Computed example of a mutant assay.
Amino acid sequence: MIKLENVTKVFPSKKGKDVTALDDVSISVNKGEIHGVIGYSGAGKSTLIRCVNLLESPSKGKVWIDGTDLTKLSKEKLRQTRQKVGMIFQHFNLLRTASVYDNIAIPLKLLGVPKAEVKERVMKYLDIVDLSEKKDAYPSQLSGGQKQRVAIARALSQEPQVLLSDEATSALDPETTNSILELLLKINAELGITILLITHEMNVIQKICDYVYVIENGNLIEQGSTIELFTKPKQPTTKKFLNTISQRKLSDRLIDELNLEGKVIRLTFLGENTGQPLLSKVTQQFYVEPNILTANIIELKNGIVGNLVVHLIGSEHQVEHSLSFLKEQGVEVEELGVN
């Protein structure tokens, strides 16, 4: 449904040194899936998502929506194709002097949608976002979450095949963020809309994404299913993002001290293994003493991941056998403090 093929975006600089915001980036989003792009400020996330509907034209590469290469279209054909792509933003972009109803209706009228159909669509999508009773209210009378719901209804009213989300929850408190994410899941499930979002918040990826891309300095440095990245992160930046939502990080000093006797191990459990008493079995079978340092369970859209950081005390032989046993049970094992 969405495909970026070797996209590079370079911004000219008056100081003489051009800025490469995206460098040979390729992504592919299948119909009906939710993909997320995560990175720190300045990583290139916003440029990437603006290239999807050609709000920014790539310096190199191709952009495909539903099999059509947007970079080859005339202005008129591009305008028509963009109607397949809805977009929501961090700051809502509502008309302050227009009611909720008119904020959704005005773009439809400008597109030439018949009056009767305009009313039908406005009420249909206000109902989907649970704001029917606010149709006569003005933006100043709404909370941040309600404003974002209006923006989502406005995007949906054009009945797109794709929805782009540009940091749509960044200005919202955690509870409101969760409600908006639940709404996006509902839209994806009930309307079949493909969603591509950008964020700097790992909890957004955790809650709704099927697949994730990690971007840094304009480069895609890691990608995979959400479960893969949560269980087997490779890049330091990915691990830093994971540390923001799970108690994964211990100080190097503490790890070095503990490694003087036994080993400090990160264990990652997936699916049914999260409920198995594997540490108890290790204690009984291999005579090692596990001391749990940190532990948590993370619920993803498509599964459950458990994380334990454990200090295993015992002879080197016993510890190695216990680690082999855990690996055989499908547990990801990472020794900490090993250079």
Rank of each mutant, 00 (worst) to 15 (best):
I2H: 05
N6Q: 13
F11D: 02
K17A: 14
V19D: 08
A21W: 07
D24G: 12
D24R: 13
V25E: 06
N30S: 15
Y40A: 13
A43P: 06
L48I: 06
R50F: 04
C51T: 11
C51W: 02
E56G: 09
G61H: 09
W64A: 03
D69R: 01
L73H: 01
L78N: 06
L78Q: 07
R79P: 06
Q80E: 15
Q80S: 13
R82G: 06
R82E: 08
Q83N: 14
F89I: 08
F92P: 02
F92R: 06
Y101S: 08
Y101Q: 05
N103G: 09
N103L: 05
A105C: 04
P114I: 04
P114K: 06
V118M: 06
V122K: 04
M123N: 14
K124M: 10
L126G: 00
D127H: 11
D127G: 09
V129Q: 01
D130C: 10
L131F: 01
Y138N: 03
S140C: 10
K147R: 15
Q148R: 04
I152D: 00
P160L: 06
L164N: 01
E167P: 04
A171R: 00
L183I: 03
I187V: 12
G192A: 01
I195A: 05
I198S: 02
E201N: 12
K207C: 00
Y211T: 03
V214D: 00
I215V: 08
N217M: 10
E222K: 03
T226D: 08
I227R: 10
E228Y: 10
L229Y: 07
K232M: 08
K234G: 14
Q235N: 11
Q235S: 10
N243K: 13
N243A: 15
Q247W: 09
L250H: 09
L254Y: 09
D256W: 11
L258D: 03
N259H: 04
E261R: 13
E261P: 08
K263A: 13
R266S: 15
T268K: 08
T268L: 08
L270N: 06
L270C: 06
E272R: 10
N273H: 11
P277A: 01
L278I: 05
K281Y: 12
F286K: 01
Y287M: 12
E289A: 11
I292P: 00
L293G: 01
T294P: 07
A295M: 07
A295D: 03
E299W: 11
L300D: 04
G303F: 03
I304H: 05
L308F: 11
V309W: 02
G314S: 01
E320S: 13
L323W: 08
K327R: 15
V331H: 00
E332K: 08
E332H: 07
E332R: 07
L336K: 04
V338P: 03
N339D: 12
N339I: 15
